[in-house]
Write a protein that binds this DNA or RNA. Structure first.
Lengths: 204, 204
DNA sequence: TACTATTAATTGATCAATCAATAAAGGGGA
DNA sequence: TCCCCTTTATTGATTGATCAATTAATAGTA
């Protein structure tokens, strides 16, 4: 099976990309099939129904084709023994490095999570929950190794990711938050610093 | 001015509350005037146009009547000299204590912030920016007092608020995040702990 | 090659349903 | 009566979706 995969049917992909742009700017209800067709450069909106069941289906496919974006975690797997400063900095850097597409996907997910619990659930499962899961395991291991003092890793994992969120929110949702001019690297350095000092083993 | 406050014009308030419910569940575009009328228990959607200019105006009024919800900061003003553990705990507790209405308002703002930059801007100005502003001033003062080591307060203010955000997000947007059963108080205690130890003055 | 038969992709026209908004007409208390 | 509130009825525009019909691409046959 899968032999005719010579040249992708560009259309489908074009429509998906146009749909991401329109959905992320206007939301599910605000976006129109005709608007997406226009954005995709096709002359008839009927064509969309050739490739997709309906608007709902199109939306789902847009998500499916973009949500598994947080693949960086996979690369973090073999880092369980590496020292915290490096791992946390790397993870944070990956978290804050968002390109145009990722920003759109995140905006889309956040916007729709409000209206569609199932979108929120799927997103959490493949994104944040995976990152948090790794962090819990990693921080737990570092406690075992005596590099961090014993504590509730459910909480510290949340806390570390959280420290970076306002910075991320400034880029994706609330530009006004960037007003103080703090750069990603500065904030990352300070955050890692506070976090690690805060979890330093008792005896120095 | 404001003298005709004879008997509550229940209608207007009823419509506003119904509108908050519908807008927060379906978003601006997803909500319909008819749906809001039905939710408000009035027989005709035309009545809404007696009290409000149009859908846009109604939406704006819903926001205006609910956004200045983060009033807790005002009460924090006179706390500049109080020790960090108490202040941070209090602030965090206020931050995490969200009732039904506040949750709806937050969901509404987040959902629309994606689509309407001006909503995002107004929200940030009266909410997060005010809290961050207080925190920057407070943390700076604590550094002066020698209770915290010198550092970039733009970053630490962000970081502290951020530490609480995943917990908040679990309640408002992504219920799946609550799966590990971590309570608000537990997370708050751990967070304050990490944060303050992380900023402890050098000489112990 | 050349001609034909099938399938895939694309179009413009059109549908009923629904939308926000307006117009017109009560209704009830002063 | 007048005025504030409320409803019924209706508007024109737009929505998601379906349709028949046309074009482009592919496969089969000789």
């Amino acid at each position: 099976m899968s032999e005719q995969s010579r040249q992708e049917p560009d259309r489908r992909r074009e429509i998906l990309e146009a749909a991401l742009r329109v959905f992320s700017e206007r939301g599910f209800y605000g976006a129109t099939i005709k608007g997406i067709a226009r954005e995709a450069g096709i002359k008839s909106s009927a064509l969309i129904y050739w490739y997709f069941e309906d608007k709902e289906d199109l939306f789902g496919e847009v998500l499916a084709s973009h949500v598994p974006v947080v693949r960086a975690v996979a690369e973090l797997g073999p880092l369980m023994e590496v020292e915290p400063e490096e791992v946390l900095t790397r993870l944070g850097r990956a978290y804050l490095a968002f390109n145009e597409t990722n920003t759109r996907v995140l905006r889309l997910v956040i916007g729709e999570a409000v209206l569609r619990p199932e979108v929120a659930e799927r997103f959490v499962a493949v994104g944040p929950e995976r990152v948090l899961g790794f962090l819990r395991a990693y921080l737990g291991r570092q406690v075992e190794l005596g590099r961090l003092r014993p504590h509730d890793v459910r909480s510290s994992a949340r806390a570390y990711i959280g420290m970076l969120i306002p910075q991320l929110a400034g880029k994706v949702l609330f530009p006004a938050l960037q007003a103080d001019g703090l750069t990603d690297e500065e904030h990352l350095r300070t955050s890692v610093n506070i976090f690690l000092r805060g979890l330093e083993p008792e005896g120095r």
